[in-house]
């Protein structure tokens, strides 16, 4: 018994030393982050969109003290459910308000400058009208980015989502060069952090916290769809232009609660996939911008300017 007692005391001493060390370490780390925050806080506030993350996204997971209220979603390399996620974007409904980008930025705490879903002003030819074109990651079924990744950092899950393991990525940026949709972003510097972001532990399904020197992109909010919720962009679209659903179930739903058959919507709506001819087999379908009810990017000159 005395022996066990000494052992436990030793263990206790060890533990307390560890705890003290960890606390010191944590304080150091936190103060460093706090400094980062100090420097960038005003900047961050200026850059963050006016979108306020609602209880469904951030508040549900993060308490007031910045601690997690729910465990971090695991980082499975295989899909948690037998699903095939698919997205349909009705260009006739998109009025270019940019709420999808804002919702996505808030949900994923996307570093400033990156737009995981980017709304382009498009004009296909001189005669055609201009239109808005939201571009998420296409989650291609024949993904050029996955093919070229040298370290298996980006991969295709069975449920159709192309994920990136930021613990694996070496930052060679080959996937960015290979992506025909310019859907990938790189953290060129240490991204500005918020405390809520830093409080999370890393999960591939969240891509939070963001790190320097790795590639990021839209990931179809796997953490949300796993729990039966629309991805942030679809939920944040005031026009109900973004439908997301399960191709196996053959249903898609938008933020208005409209639920239709995926196959009918695409079949009858003249659905197409962007750059189909490249053979990337995207999982994002577009409905053409016909008979839209609100203004489109008007002048061609504006677009020519943007094209540079």
């Amino acid at each position: 018994m005395p022996e066990r007692h000494t052992v436990s005391r030793r263990q206790f001493l060890k533990l307390s030393a560890l705890a003290a060390g960890a606390a010191a370490l944590g304080r150091g780390v936190l103060s460093r982050f706090a400094q980062t925050m100090e420097g960038t806080a005003s900047q961050v506030r200026a850059l963050l969109p006016a979108f306020v993350a609602d209880a469904k996204t951030l508040g549900r997971l993060i308490g007031q003290d910045g601690r997690e209220l729910q465990p971090v979603p695991p980082s499975p390399r295989s899909a948690p459910q037998r699903r095939k996620w698919v997205m349909v974007i009705d260009l006739a409904r998109c009025d270019g308000c940019g709420r999808c980008t804002e919702a996505c930025t808030a949900m994923h705490m996307v570093p400033f400058g990156q737009e995981w879903i980017k709304v382009y002003r498009m004009k296909d030819n001189a005669a055609a009208g201009a239109y808005w074109f939201p571009r998420p990651c296409m989650q291609c079924d024949n993904p050029p980015c996955v093919a070229v990744c040298p370290v298996d950092a980006t991969f295709k899950r069975e449920d159709g989502i192309v994920l990136i393991d930021q613990d694996r990525c070496i930052g060679c940026r080959y996937c960015m060069a290979a992506c025909p949709y310019s859907a990938r972003s790189f953290n060129w510097a240490e991204p500005p952090h918020s405390l809520a972001e830093l409080a999370r532990s890393y999960s591939m399904e969240l891509n939070i916290p963001h790190r320097k020197g790795v590639v990021e992109k839209c990931i179809f909010c796997p953490g949300l769809v796993r729990e039966g919720q629309l991805p942030a962009c679809a939920a944040g679209c005031p026009m109900g232009a973004i439908y997301v659903g399960d191709e196996l179930e053959d249903t898609v739903t938008n933020s208005w609660g409209e639920t239709t058959r995926f196959s009918e919507l695409v079949h009858q709506g003249g659905g197409y996939r962007y750059l189909e001819e490249l053979g990337t087999e995207p999982r994002v379908y577009y409905l053409p911008h016909r008979d839209h009810q609100y203004p489109m990017p008007e002048t061609a000159g504006q677009i020519e300017q943007q094209r540079g």
């Binding site: 370290v151 694996r168 990525c169 060679c172």
Partner: peptide, 29 residues
């Protein structure tokens, strides 16, 4: 030069541990 170009040169060893043979970078390597 490609090592200088890497965003995470500290993870260069991933090329040895997790190489994917279908990537031209691995062919290059």
């Amino acid at each position: 030069m490609p090592i200088v170009d890497l965003g995470r040169p500290d993870r260069i060893w991933h090329l040895l541990v997790y190489p994917r043979i279908q990537s031209p970078i691995v062919w290059d390597f």
